[in-house]
Each structure stands twice: as C-alpha cells, then as structure tokens.
Design a binder for these strands. Structure first.
Length: 860
RNA sequence: GCGGACGUGGCGAAACGGUAGACGCAGCAGACUUAAAAUCUGCUUCCCCUCGGGGAGUGCGGGUUCGAAACCCGCCGUCCGCACCA
C-alpha cells in the first residue's frame, strides 16, 4: 500500500534511537569530575526520582525542563554537569515485600532498570556514568561516614522525646511528615510515643538558614516565604514566674511571650498538658489527672479538627507576678497550649490575645485592659469579645504606663533582666530533625550500643554497615530488630557483647547530599574537595513545589553543616531553583461511580463525554491531578511509542508556562506531532535544492526572511534564558510560518532559515534537530556539539516600522514610517491620516507624543 | 485566623506603561480527494453598521498617566502554604 502516493513522513521511531546512540558514542554529555580550562561550569539538576516502578508525566515534565536548560547551556559554551540517580530507600519497597514477598532490593533495582530504560527513550542529555542509587552500599556507606563526622562535630544528639508514631506504618514520623495530624504516607491518625531517637541539630543553623534566604535571588519568592515561616523566628522574652509554693521540686515556671509589654494585663498562667507542672499537679488531684488523659486522647489532630473549643482546668497552684508585689495568679492546664512551642507555658493576657480572652470568658477569669488603642479614652474603653492585639499606649501598667508597644517591650525586658526574672530571647518554630526510623529499607545508623561504653560509633574500617539480605517481613515492626544475628556484635571499645542500632535513617537524609555526591560518585570518601567545590552550587535545580520545605530545607542544612566541617566551600547548595507545576488530566466518572480511563470515553467537541461501552454520558472533571484511583494517568511510554519523545517534550513545553499546572490533552499532543512533521517536511522538501552553505547579499523577500531568522534567534534565546519555554515554542511556530510564507525566496536565505530552525529547536526536540541538520548538512556532525546561534543585530533590524496613531489614547490608525524618521515627518504622516483627522474633528492639537518605534498620540 | 500568589476569547496563553488576544487547541468555511485520512487556504473577543467604520472590552469600583492587563487604593473570587506559634 505504501507507494509514491503516500507522502513522506518523519520516522521518529527509527531516528530517535539512532541519535541517542550517536550522542552516546560521541560522549556528548560527559564532563570531568573537576571542571577544567576556561569554560565556565554549569550544574543542572532535576530532583531525582523515587523508583516506584514506572515514570509518570510529572517526571517527563521535570526532566524535559532540565534537559532544555542543560542542552541550551552546553550550546552556550558551559561545561554542563547533568547527572541522574535514584532516591531508592523508602517504605514502598518494604510494603511490596510484605504484600508480594519480593525482596525490597530486588523490587527496587528492577524498578530502576525499567525506569532507566524509559528515561533513556526520552533522549535526555544525561551523563549516565554518574548514576547511583541511594540504596547502593557505595552510597549509603559514605553517608554513614558523614553521619559519624556529624557526631564528632557535635551536630547529632540522642534524645528521649515524644515522637509522632504512625500506628499503621509502625514508624516514627518527622513533624514535617505529619499533615493535619495524619501520617503523610499512611494517612493514619498519628499518636504520641516516647522513644530514644537520633536528632540532627538543624536548630543550631536556624538563624543562618533564615538570613541566607535573602541571598537566594534565583529562588521563587513563595518558596523562600514558606521556608521563613517554617523556621518561624519570633522575638520576645522568657519570663520566670515563681510558684507560691514549690511542687515536686519545681519552684518556678518559665513562659515564652512576644508581648512582655502586656505583663500587667496578666490574668492566669497556663501550661500544656504534657508540661512537668501539669504532671506534678496530676499527682495531687484525680480531676487534673483525668483532664490530662482526656486532652491526650483527643490528641493534636482532634484539637485541630474541632479548633475553637478551648478547655482547661485550674491546678490550684499559684504564681507570683514578677512586677507586682504580692499579686498571684492561678496556674491552669489548657488544651490550646502546646508543649512543642516556646516553653510549653504561657501567661494569659486576655485583653491582648484572642485565645486568652476566649479562655478567660469561658472560665470567668478577669480581663484587665492594658493597651489603649489610639484615639480611645481610658475611662470608656472596654474589651468585649474581641481582644485588642494591635499597637497602642500602655496603661494600668505601673512603670510601663504611657509607653508605646515597642518601647514597652524594651522596657519590660530591661526590667525583667534587672530583677533576674527573665530575658529577651528569639524563639524558633523549627525543631531539631529526628532522623531515626524503625525500618529495614534505609541506611543503617552506624552506631553500637554497649552496656559498659554507651553509644560507640562503628569504626571506619567496619564501614559500611550493610543491610542483611535474609530478612523476615512476616512480623510487624522492624525486621532489623528481630533479625536473629545481625544486631549482635562485639563492642568496638571493650569487646563485650553489644547491640547494633537497628534504626535506619529517614530517607530525607539520603537526598540531602546526593547533589554533592554526583560530582565524584565513585570516590572512596563521601566527597572529593576539588570535585564538589568545582561544581557546587547547583546552578539550576528543578523540581516540584511539594519539596519547598522538607527536602530543600534539609539540603540547605546539610550543606551548611558540611561547610562548617570543611567538606564543601559553599554554604548554599542551590543557587537557582525552579518549581514546576503539576501535569493534570481530565477525569471521567460514569453514572454508577466508576472511573473511566481516557481511552474508554468518547469526548465531544464541546468537552462533554460518553462511555464508549454503554453510550451513557459521563461526568467530566477538568484539571484533576493524575492519579491511579481516578484512572486519568497517561503512560509516557505509550506516548513515546505513538508520537516519539520529541513530540511529548514539545507538547509539554508548549502548553503553558512551566511553573503552572498543565493539562495533558490528546489534541495538544497531536498538535505537537503535526508541527514536528511539518518542520521535517519543510526541510526534507527543500534540502536537495538548496545552494551550498554560504551567504550572499539579500534583497526583497530574501532580506525579509533573513530578518525573521535573526529576530527569531534573538527571541528564542531570550525566552530560553527566562524559562519562558512556551514563548520559545510560539516564536518557532511563527518562524515556521514565516519560512513557508517566504515561498521560493532566495536559496541562501532559505538555507540559513532552515538551519536556524533546526538548531533553535535542539534544546526542545533534540532528535528532530539532528535529523534536520543531517538533511541540511550531511556529514557535518551533531547539533549537540554546535555552539548556540548568535543573532546578527544588523540583519534583525527593520527598514520601516508600523506606528500606532492614537487620538486621546484611542487607536485611530497605523502608519508605516522608515526607521529613524524624524519626529516632524512622523507627526505629519500621522496627522495626514483620514481617520485621525476625523477623530481630531477640527480641534487644536494641544500635545503631540511620539515614542519612536511604538506610538504617536495626539491630545486635543 | 495569619501569610502569599493569581483572575485576559470557547480553552491553554502572549503582551519593556505604548496597536490587547501573538502562538497553539477547539470551531466554521473552502481547496485537494470517488471518499476518508493527511495536507493546504481563509475566518474566528463581544455588540452595532450604510462594509468606510463605530462602540465596548483584560474579575468589580475608584485613582495616577497623553496612554494602564501591567502602577496605587478598596472590594469580590479562586488556589496554595502555615495554623490554638503564645
């Protein structure tokens, strides 16, 4: 059937693997561990994937964006480091082991093989020689060395602490992994449990992690803001209140407040249910004990759900006021006071804090007003159900009377410090990072517990501490813990029987330094100074907004810690950050509630859809996140089979700006495919008839085509520089239109245009670029090895421009004038327009405005 | 509650304070075909019209400016983050 009548088409299926091999053979994307010579370095990195089984469209978008940057920067003369690896430890591998009896390592490495093959089909300019998985002993063994360095540097603590316990996954979660009181993975309600845990001292770096955000000028503002909020700096004071009688050895209770100026408005003191004072009070009163039990059982999550309800109980204890001789206040336990923030205790100033006011009203506590709002009369101002939390003038406040809020704070802190009852402090919301997980499939924490010697680091020559392969997943809990022999070792110090730590690291530890390891991935030390200092920081990091806090903050902390230990020269790992939007797809729900896959429905022109099988209408919901449960995922592999990698890449780039959520549509992919075929036809049809390379003076249509060429080079370059990839795509579309419109104009100009098109698409559609280039310049080598095109400003320049002519700011006409025409000529031409005259309607022109190349405006 | 971002045709979107809607998707009309696919050409913000044009228009209401989608003030809406943070 295929004969001469069938129009020729670009055969991506054979071309794409061919060019992938050509790049590989030419080692186009390899760089040395240490950047060499005078060419500047550029490190492009996309957040490495978790090997879940298959790549999804989010990966395709992420790696396409990174590849455009990598290929573009390479063409701009940079030595580009662009590696890929696998964030390979984690729970799903263990779940697979429990559910299907497959070993986590086998499951993981098999997934990696599958996904590597899929990524390779995308034609990414990656340096695969640097690939590693975090579950390789050669990686996590080096991580164990780093941990021991952290330990020696005093950046690790072992603390008994209340942890977030996930009862479904049987593991501890970081605060960041608790979302609305539920485990981020299992969704189970999180319980509080006390365990001995390893903590990395991220709080020590809180001030610099906050301050350095200002210097990250190529990070999205919102990510910096989210981090700043998470670190949560607040200035205030710690105030010690003496108990009127000691309880369980405690003589005082300390509170944190941001409003020491309102101390005279105190009405009560409240502590968290977990506070030692609460525990002491419980010992003296069954009612108090019962209340604490009740608050605990509700838990933080329930509290969040029913928010508003403030509850408390009077302990019967009292505290003295630091400033008011002889005054004392009741100590309450309140459910809205959190042990995790500040000191777990507050002083209640109902007139100046809404929560305190709600509490005071509920339990009939006094509400002494101390802040007078501007313009209010102290004789008449009263607090109703709304606390006054703004600035004002202090009154009823002894020595603070008459001071404003800021001066009041300073004066109160000075007075507290003078009498030894408190100090001005900065309080941080950030907690230390608990990294212990009661899990098998993670990096073993390299310490040994000895009854005589305590915690003993595993000696260097015994590293790596590798995971045992023979593990039993049939019991709940940590397989390392109930392994028959693995944990039983001799103490490295005294030689007596001791036990290995059976906890493994939070997988966020693994991803906190992988970007540094890529610079020398096979080294026998964690990092090689010349390599890591040569390549870091990552110049462009690209990934999802979901990592705005956790991964990015941990990585910043890790880099600072490594910096403080002399491992790396920089303090910030990521100079530029780009957060991409999600890939979404319409979802289809049948009447009976079943979700239908896209290929099971018939979508009409108006967007409505029917079930192919039954013919019944289905509910269409646009812009749904792709998910297996809604059956609206699109398999990248199938798209590449049908359309090729370039088409998938082109569509993803063309649809919208990369930081916004995009909708995957069949029509959009088809459009991208059409364009790739059109470009190919344009080149394939002309290649044989073009003159050999070389330029000649051009006139008329040829001159216009050369102008379009050089303008397009400039416009695409600018768009690529600013991550406006959708605009770059649009400019290339316009360029294709211009080349077609130029018809048979001049061979040399046409060759120049087609060659430019081939090279300009190369960051986005690299295979097609090579194919076109090989048609235009057989045997001339790879586009991947060519420098970026330069726009010739002379050629891009226009001979004449179209000016808009406005009267009173309203467009009335346009005129064509030579570039550089003098103002008098321009005004004369503009005034001569019939439409302009009609709009002026005989009125005198009061003002003439001319913005050269843009606009003329007459004010009448 | 606090903080932030964003509102432009049927849809995705462009637009140094200077011709709003480039480019694409969808749609309509036509060409080529026995037909379809593929491809190509034209039209496509809304309203009025004497086919020359005219009016309105970037969530709403004001303001600054010769000129505002963009800058300022106030609303409304959507989304995101944090959330009894003392």
């Amino acid at each position: 059937m295929n004969d001469a009548a069938t129009p020729a088409r670009y055969d991506f299926a054979s071309a794409e693997p061919r060019w992938q091999h050509a790049w590989e053979d030419a080692r186009c994307f390899s760089v040395p561990d240490v950047p060499y010579g005078s060419r500047p370095k550029y490190y492009v990195l996309e957040m490495f994937p978790y090997p879940s089984g298959k790549i999804h469209m989010g990966h395709v978008r992420n790696y396409t964006l990174g590849d455009v940057v990598a290929r573009y920067k390479r063409a701009r003369g940079f030595q580009v480091l662009h590696p890929m690896g696998w964030d390979a430890f984690g729970l799903p591998a263990e779940n697979a082991a429990r559910e299907r009896g497959v070993h986590p390592a086998a499951w993981t490495y098999q997934n990696i093989d599958t996904m590597r093959a899929e990524l390779k089909r995308m034609g990414l300019s990656l340096e695969w020689e640097r690939e590693f998985a975090t579950c390789d002993p050669s990686y996590y063994g080096q991580q164990q060395k780093l941990f021991l360095d952290f330990l020696r540097a005093g950046l690790v603590e072992r603390k008994e602490s209340a942890v977030n316990w996930d009862p479904v996954d049987h593991t501890v979660l970081a605060n960041e992994q608790v979302i609305d009181g539920r485990g981020w993975r299992s969704g189970a309600l999180v319980e509080k449990k006390r365990l001995s845990q390893w903590f990395l001292s991220i709080t020590r770096f809180a001030p610099e992690l906050l301050e350095a955000l200002d210097g990250l000028d190529r990070w999205p503002e919102r990510v910096k803001l989210m981090q700043a909020n998470w670190i949560g700096r607040s200035e205030g004071a710690r105030v010690r209140f003496a108990l009127t009688e000691p309880v369980a050895g405690m003589e005082q209770v300390e509170v944190f407040t941001t409003r020491p100026d309102t101390l005279f408005g105190m009405s009560f003191l409240a502590v968290a249910a977990d506070h030692p004072l609460a525990t002491a009070a419980a010992g003296r009163s069954p009612e108090v004990a019962a209340f604490i039990t009740e608050v605990r059982s509700l838990g933080t999550s329930e509290a969040a759900i029913e928010q508003a309800e403030k509850r408390g109980i009077d302990t019967g204890l009292r505290v003295a006021h630091p400033f008011i001789e002889g005054a004392s206040y009741p100590v309450w336990i309140a459910n809205f006071v959190l042990m995790e923030y500040g000191t777990g205790a507050i002083f209640g100033c109902p007139s100046g804090d809404q929560r305190d006011l709600d509490f005071a009203r509920k339990y009939g506590l006094p509400v002494p007003p101390v802040i007078l709002p501007p313009g209010e009369d102290p004789a008449t101002f009263a607090i109703g159900d709304t606390a006054y939390t703004e600035d004002g003038t202090l009154y009823n406040s002894g020595f603070l009377d008459g001071l404003g809020t800021a001066e009041g704070k300073r004066a109160a802190i000075a007075a507290l410090e003078k009498i030894g009852a408190g100090t001005g402090v900065v309080n941080w919301r950030l907690r230390d990072w608990g990294v212990s997980r009661q899990r098998y499939w993670g990096c073993p924490i390299p310490v040994i517990h000895c009854e005589a010697c305590g915690v003993v680091p595993v000696p260097d020559d015994q590293l790596p501490v590798t995971l045992p392969e023979d593990v039993d997943f049939s019991k709940p809990g940590n397989p390392l813990d109930h392994h028959p022999v693995w944990k039983h070792v001799g103490c490295p110090q005294c030689g007596k029987p001791a036990q290995r730590e059976t906890d493994t690291f939070d997988t966020f530890v693994d991803s906190s330094w992988y970007f540094a390891r890529f610079t020398a991935p096979k080294a026998g030390t964690p990092l090689v100074p010349a390599a890591v200092n040569g390549w870091l920081p990552v110049d462009q990091y690209i990934g999802g907004i979901e990592h705005a806090i956790l991964h990015l903050l941990y990585s910043r902390f890790f880099t600072r810690a490594l910096h403080s230990m002399g491992y790396v020269g920089v303090a910030e790992p990521f100079a530029g950050l780009f957060t991409q939007g999600m890939v979404q797809h319409a979802s289809y729900k049948a009447r009976d509630g079943r979700w239908l896959a896209p290929d099971e429905v018939e979508v009409a022109a108006d967007g409505s859809a029917t079930d192919k099988a039954s013919g019944l209408p289905v509910t269409v919901s646009r812009n749904d996140k792709m998910s297996k449960s809604k059956r609206n995922t699109i398999d990248p592999g199938a798209i590449i089979d049908q359309y090729g990698a370039d088409t998938a890449r082109w569509f993803i780039l063309s649809d919208n700006p990369p930081d916004r959520d995009m909708e995957w549509t069949a029509a959009g992919v088809a459009g991208a495919s059409r364009f790739s075929q059109r470009l190919w036809r344009l080149v394939n049809g002309a290649a044989a008839t073009l003159p050999p390379p070389g330029t000649e003076p051009a006139e008329g249509a040829a001159r216009d085509l050369r102008r379009a060429t050089h303008r397009t080079i400039a416009a695409v370059t600018e768009a690529l520089e600013s991550f406006a990839f959708n605009v770059a795509v649009a400019r290339i579309h316009e360029f294709a239109n211009a080349i077609e419109a130029a018809g048979e104009a001049d061979g040399a100009a046409r060759r120049e245009a087609l060659e430019a098109a081939a090279r300009l698409i190369s960051p986005m559609m690299p295979h097609l670029a090579e194919e076109l280039w090989s048609l235009l310049r057989p045997g001339a080598g790879l586009v991947a090895g060519l420098p970026w095109l330069e726009s010739d400003a002379e050629l891009a320049k226009a001979d004449s421009v179209t000016l808009a002519v406005q009267v009173l700011g309203k467009l009335r006409s346009t005129i064509e004038v030579p570039v550089g025409a003098d103002e008098a000529t321009v005004f004369a031409a503009a005034e001569a327009e019939e439409n302009v005259q009609r709009a002026i309607a005989g009125r005198p022109i009061r003002k003439r405005i001319h913005v050269p190349g843009r606009i003329v405006n007459f004010v009448v």
